[in-house]
């Protein structure tokens, strides 16, 4: 297989430029030029997103640029990559995991959660977004019903943090510990708090959240 690094770098730049049309054309050129949809997805699309995430983590780009790139990637994925995969690799599953996501009870903030949602979607997760102010019981019920791999809990308020603990406890009571991993995040959340309440992972921001979700999925294989 040819080294696809140069392609992923060029694709990352198109995403960062938010050049939707050119990003779609470039993807089609590569796909029609002999690169298989699976290789494109794994070695160009995903690698480019990782590179952009790393830039954000290094503060080389700002949040609106990250979101803009993610929106462009989502369009390319929906309009080019997924149809090509369906056409040439029917049955190939690009879904890396299913996650139930919400802002916990008492918390009405949704911007951070929505960013995590977008980043998870473009990184191949099936996201079931329950919204804001979601009780532990509703979260666990939905995770069970959907046979989710992960639960993502967001909280921006110290006053709503206890509901994260309650959700983890309820998961354990339902016998889902080890089956459904819980990741937590939000401004007041720390790794120590995450550990203290028995969550499986902590994401400082949307990028770290995606990385941790991927790690959790790897650990369940």
């Amino acid at each position: 297989m040819p080294d696809l690094t140069a392609y992923s770098q060029e694709f990352a730049q198109l995403l960062l430029n938010s050049d939707v049309q050119r990003a779609k054309e470039y993807s089609l050129e590569l796909l029609d030029g002999g690169i298989s949809p699976i290789d494109f997805f794994n070695d160009i699309f995903t690698v480019a997103l990782t590179e952009i995430g790393d830039k954000f983590a290094r503060l080389d780009i700002f949040l609106p640029e990250l979101m803009d790139a993610a929106e462009t990637a989502k369009t390319v994925s929906t309009e080019v990559v997924q149809p090509k995969l369906a056409e040439k690799n029917a049955g190939y599953n690009t879904i890396r995991g299913k996650i139930v996501l919400c802002s916990v009870k008492g918390d009405l903030h949704d911007i951070g959660k929505n960013m995590v949602k977008l980043m998870l979607q473009v990184n191949g997760f099936d996201v079931i977004d329950l919204g804001v102010d979601i009780s532990p019981r509703d979260t666990i019920r939905k995770a069970k019903e959907e046979e989710a791999d992960l639960i993502g809990l967001s909280s921006l308020m110290t006053t709503s943090m206890p509901y994260m603990k309650e959700t983890v406890e309820l998961r354990d009571e339902f016998g889902l510990k080890g089956k459904v991993k819980v990741i937590v995040g939000g401004a007041p959340i720390t790794p120590e708090y995450s550990h203290q309440i028995g969550a499986d992972a902590f994401g400082r921001d949307a990028i770290e959240g995606v990385r941790e979700c991927l790690r959790l999925m790897e650990s369940t294989k």
Binding site: L63, P64, M67, D68, A70, E71, D110, I111, N114, M115, L118
Partner: peptide, 9 residues
């Protein structure tokens, strides 16, 4: 934000 994250932000 449901349809355009950047604009919503």
């Amino acid at each position: 934000m449901e349809t355009d994250m950047v604009h919503g932000l």
